[in-house]
Simulated scan of single mutants.
Amino acid sequence: MFAQVPGPIGIFDSGYGGLTIFDKIRKRMPAYDYIYLGDNARTPYGPRSFDVVYQFTRQAVERLFEEGCQLIILACNTASAKALRTIQQQDLPRWDADRRVLGVIRPTVEVLGELSRTRHIGILGTTGTISSQSYTLEIEKLFPDMTVTSEACPMWVPLVENNEYDSPGADYFIRKHLDHILAADPQIDTLVLGCTHYPLLWDKIKQFIPQHIHVLAQGEYVAASLENYLMRHPEMEARLTKGSQSRFMTTESEEKFAEAASLFLQDPVEVSQITIEG
C-alpha cells in the first residue's frame, strides 16, 4: 500500500502540544529525519468521542505513512488513549505490518516506579484521557501497589493554545485543579502531566504545589524510550533516514502554526498547510 523505502520518523499531535515531545526526541536523536503533523483545524481532541478520535488519528497516521514515515509517535495522550490500540491491532496489519505506531502513555508510566516513594500518583489530563482511564489501567498492570488519582483539566489546553498560559488569569484554573487533586489524596508525591501541552504550564504548576512533589513531563522519558526501542529493533532503525531534516505540517493556518511553534521550540519553523481526508 505504501512505498517500501527508508523514511523519516513521524510525530503526530492534535495541535501544538506534541512539539514538547518532538523537541526532546530531536535533541536526543538529532541525526534522524522527522515529520511533525499537527491537526490544528480539529483540535482539541480531549472532549471528543472514542470513535471520532480514532477516525481523526487514523487519517493522520495514514497521511504520515503516505509521506514515507516508517515509525510514528502519537505525541498526543488523547490519541494514545483512544486510538493507539485499534490502529495497532486493526489498521497496521492491513496497511503494512512492518511499520510501527507508538504512544506516549506506556513510556511515561514505566518511569513511575523510580520516582514515587509514597506510591501515590496523580494524573492531570484532558477530559478524554482521564475518562479513558488509560493511565490508571497501565499503572495497575505495571505497579499494582500504586494508588492513582486523576483530575481532568479541560481549560488547560485552551490556555496554552491561546497563549494565555503565563497570564494572571491562568492562575485560577491551574490552582483549582491542583488543589482538588491534592485534597483528594494528600499522599501524592508524583504528578504526571498527562497532556503534551501542560509542560508550558510548568512554572505555574510548581508555584501551587509543595516542593516535595515531583512533576513528570513526558518529553525526556518518551525520547529515551524511543531511543531504547530503536536499539532493541535494529530492523526498524535501518528503515529510518538520517539527514537531520525536520518538516512541519498543519491542517490549519501556516502562519498561526509557525507563531505557536516558535514558543514551543524557541526556533522559527517552516510549515506547510495540508488537508486530511479519510
Rank of each mutant, 00 (worst) to 15 (best):
T78A: 04
P30F: 04
G18S: 04
E227C: 05
R26K: 14
D23F: 07
I213K: 12
I105G: 04
M236Q: 08
Y165M: 03
Q89L: 11
T129S: 06
S150A: 07
N77Y: 10
E254A: 13
R106L: 15
P210R: 02
S167L: 02
S49Q: 06
G10S: 05
L74Q: 13
G17S: 04
E138A: 15
Y229T: 06
T127M: 10
I209K: 02
Q211M: 07
T78V: 05
E255R: 10
R175G: 01
H177M: 11
I105E: 07
S246F: 07
I130W: 01
G103E: 04
T20D: 11
S246M: 01
P154G: 13
K242Q: 13
S14E: 10
I123M: 03
I209M: 04
G125L: 03
V109K: 00
I276K: 01
S253N: 08
P93T: 06
K204W: 01
L191P: 04
T86L: 14
I205A: 03
I181G: 00
A258E: 13
S134N: 02
R99F: 02
F50R: 12
R58T: 07
D98E: 13
L178N: 05
T251L: 02
R42K: 06
M1A: 05
F12L: 08
I87Q: 00
G18N: 08
A81V: 07
D267T: 15
I25S: 07
I123N: 09
F2Q: 12
D98L: 13
G128Q: 12
H214W: 08
Y135I: 02
K256T: 11
S132R: 03
N162F: 13
L201H: 09
S49C: 02
G113R: 05
P93A: 10
F143E: 06
R247S: 09
C69K: 06
E252K: 12
V192D: 02
E140N: 09
M231E: 15
V215M: 12
M146N: 04
S225H: 11
G278S: 14
D91Y: 10
D185W: 06
R58K: 08
S14Y: 08
P93N: 14
S132K: 00
E277W: 14
I35H: 13
I11T: 10
E235T: 05
Q55R: 14
Y34F: 09
R117W: 09
E270D: 15
T136L: 10
L71P: 00
V111Y: 01
H212F: 14
A184M: 13
Q89M: 01
F50C: 09
E67R: 14
V222E: 03
P186W: 00
P154S: 14
I21W: 00
A258G: 11
Q90L: 12
Q70F: 08
T250A: 01
I87G: 10
S150N: 06
T147F: 08
I73Q: 09
